[in-house]
Amino acid sequence: MSDAIVSSPRVGSASTGGLVEVAVLVGALGVLWFVPDFAGDYWLQLGFRTCVYLVLAQGWNLMAGSAGLVSLGTSSFIGLGAYAALGLLNRVGAPLPLALLICATAGGVLAALVSPALFRLRGLYFTVGTLALAELLRLLMVNVSAFGGATGIILQEDPPALPVLFRYVLVLAFLASLTITLCTRTRVSVILRAVRDDEDAAAQMGIRPYRVKLGAFVLASALAAMAGGIQAAKLGAIEPYGMFGLQWSIDVLSMVIIGGVGLRLGPLVGALFVVALGEALADYPEAHTAIAGVILIVLIRFAPQGIVGLAVKLPLIGRVQA
């Protein structure tokens, strides 16, 4: 029975479940909003990183878990968002929220533009194509001097204070989670899962698989671009190797696989786990990613549904989850 619960998150009424989820999200936002009032910088830093990761993981989980698209190109959109955000802040003096919205648009447009190449063949090509896209953009940024070349660009004014940034990223994480809730708790979810399960049979039901996958890709890319934008605002200085680096893609993929692909709580658990692992191994940076690699191998082999999948299989927690 636990399998049925895992694979079909809607036990009971869809709308009730959705409302509960929205209520939990609003409650979490309300409580966490006041964290800067009593927490120190260390915890705000961690909170900021967790929220950025959560935004990325929510989008990636939507693509992989719901539409079957495994991306290694998250960094393309993070980098794009980062450059767009600092460009807007420096040149136009746009306020940060507006800049982030424009980042989201840019991310979505880029995703739509490259989709003909990436969706041409099914499956593996999407993965290698996204990998190449990130490398292409990084090389472009390194070489074009208008974008600051290899040294990147610097935010001219001072970055906002950490508590302010924390609240921005908190709202962003809230909005990302809310969007995904809308996608997974409404009728959109059956369409997405149908395409993931059997694209041909879905088409025979009148679904246009290309559009559905494109939608998931555009949405995830817009989220990643916003995450990149706010990350850049916090850093105050960006360069192509960091913002377009493969590490972003590794982190987001690890989070979702560790948390549980396609599961609602997977991104959150995964983000917390990866941040906690990073802290625990802060003094051994090389060992950190290697250990993440070992964890990935073990989970793929023995627990393809990740930590959340394992937890749900335990009868007690499984019932609570339901």
Partner: peptide, 11 residues
């Protein structure tokens, strides 16, 4: 038959 295996009959 090619039902969507991980979805309920109603879904």
């Amino acid at each position: 038959p090619r039902p969507f295996l991980d979805m309920s009959v109603e879904e």
